[in-house]
Nucleic acid binder design. Sequence first.
DNA 1: CTGAAAGCGCTTACAG
DNA 2: CTGAAAGCGCTTACAG
Lengths: 351, 351
Amino acid sequence: MASIKDVAAAAGVSVATVSRVLNEHPSVSADARTRVLAAVADLGYRPNAVARSLRTDQTHTLGLVISDVMNPYFTELARSVEEEARALGYSVIIGNADERPDLQDHHVRNLLDRRIDGLLVSPTDGGSPLMLDAVRAGTPMVFVDRWIPAVDVPVVRADGRAAVRDLVAHLYGLGHRRLAIIAGPAATTTGSERVEAFRAALAEYGLPLPDAYTGQGDFQAESGRRVTEGFLDLPEPPEVVFAADNLMALGALDAVRARGLRVPDDLALAAFDDIPWFVHTDPPVTAIAQPTGELGRAAVRALVDRIEGRTPTSVTLPARLVVRRSCGEPPTPTPSLSPVQRSTSVQRSTS
Amino acid sequence: MASIKDVAAAAGVSVATVSRVLNEHPSVSADARTRVLAAVADLGYRPNAVARSLRTDQTHTLGLVISDVMNPYFTELARSVEEEARALGYSVIIGNADERPDLQDHHVRNLLDRRIDGLLVSPTDGGSPLMLDAVRAGTPMVFVDRWIPAVDVPVVRADGRAAVRDLVAHLYGLGHRRLAIIAGPAATTTGSERVEAFRAALAEYGLPLPDAYTGQGDFQAESGRRVTEGFLDLPEPPEVVFAADNLMALGALDAVRARGLRVPDDLALAAFDDIPWFVHTDPPVTAIAQPTGELGRAAVRALVDRIEGRTPTSVTLPARLVVRRSCGEPPTPTPSLSPVQRSTSVQRSTS
DNA sequence: CTGAAAGCGCTTACAG
DNA sequence: CTGAAAGCGCTTACAG
């Protein structure tokens, strides 16, 4: 592969001059520029980004460590992150932690070794020593979706509290009184926040959240299945289950179906995280939607601000309830033709 | 950040010795090794992968360019690629082409500039000059899923022909005679192969595939919707639509639902690519499943073989039909409890 | 406007 | 077993 030396030789100039035209440095004669450009085209020369990074100490690369790529929410997040980063001149390397702290550390270490300019992370746990060290060492970092308390890092996330309250109001209005939750790991902020918001909202209606109705999941489908089976085995099963993420909702759907029961007749279901497929499940799932794309973009902007010396700011965006059919909602005659706005933060889904 | 010089100074040895213990070179005295290791731990030293890459001319990194991350099939492929690569000591950088040739080129160029050791690609089109040049220049490359004919690059893919024939037999057996297809882009191998296989299978039953029943899609949901609407507007609409990928099937589902019609009663549906959600849609979708994880792993093994000087081999794995309910299949009393093996390559889905 | 030279952080023949 | 030195491909003050 041609190097800058080859180009210099072909153009009859020094490597310094080649470098200058490549980096659009103003002081290069028109003549030199033309000859260099011709040589570049001729040799099909492409600058070696590795060498450039070593010299300039910047890689123009962002690391993104997410908890689970197979989760459509995170896939969409990753997509919007890459888009915004590309628009700002950065590329991104994704590390998939699969909800495993050890894998998360593996990726953080790998990314750090590659000297990425900054790190976007949605922590799987409460924060490993490695991650804490990285922050302390001054690595530009921003948390997305999930965060680690007591660490001075900007966080970009959705606040689901209002939407959870809307959901509980919706369920109560539908006549449900025995509400259960499949919670995420308590070590994650989203895991604990969603149970707390749910519990608080229930309290507003004088409803309890007994331990038996609080299942411990891990944000993966299998745990949703397991917890739901436990609920169904109870002497008095709940009337509705709220899954703290879309994958656990999928597991819940599985569990109900496996017993030959039906949603919502035998057990109603609502989920945190809205995804395209929820429109097409049987029945369509009532869910809380996050402004995923906007979260990804805002997170990148914050990180790039930090990297480029500006002051990054934390961002909190609202989530909203999307009502469909999985909670025993009265059927809409022509669902696709009459979208009904229920309130500012509650909307009936179209299609 | 501490460099190898700092470690050398702290351990009272030369940088060469530090490098040797880091790379587990045998000829280092036990004493030197201990002192170096202590210094490394002390300083929290981590080798700079950028510098190492520049020097050794290898990045231990694989590039993966896929056509669409939001497509669950490719998400799963990416996941298995990363897993196998990690097991073999490589990391992977994913480029999402979003079915856009220009974006695909952007990523290929970016990856090449970063001097990745090898490239895994699922081409969006017939092959850009850039990609062809890369092959010619000797960049280790392997195609996954889709490939470019007339280019001497190993390809790892699934052969869907037998499964498509099984599908047509299944549909014929169900009484369907007017079968339509939502095809993928003709410029992609999977796009053209699936129509051809479908047409050939229909021919075996003396069934035609009229132009009106051949809709041109682009593997994205929106095109599935548009094509399906066209089918429904026909004086004599088809009885069943076969979508050449899961996203277009989703669009088809949308279109049918938007008209207040139902699958399979008004229009039956089958899809190429099986994904977890198809079990939970209304109705569960009959689909052709690829051995996605195995494809990803085999592709990585082929690429790493090529990189490390062994001879890579192309791999073709069979796809198989998974029968569910979207084609008017007779309902199974307890679907989850009685999985029925229909033939070696046709199975009735559990759950 | 241009080039010679230093240096980024490593690895690795070479000599001892 | 160990170190001095060269060199990977760039960028960038410095001098002219």
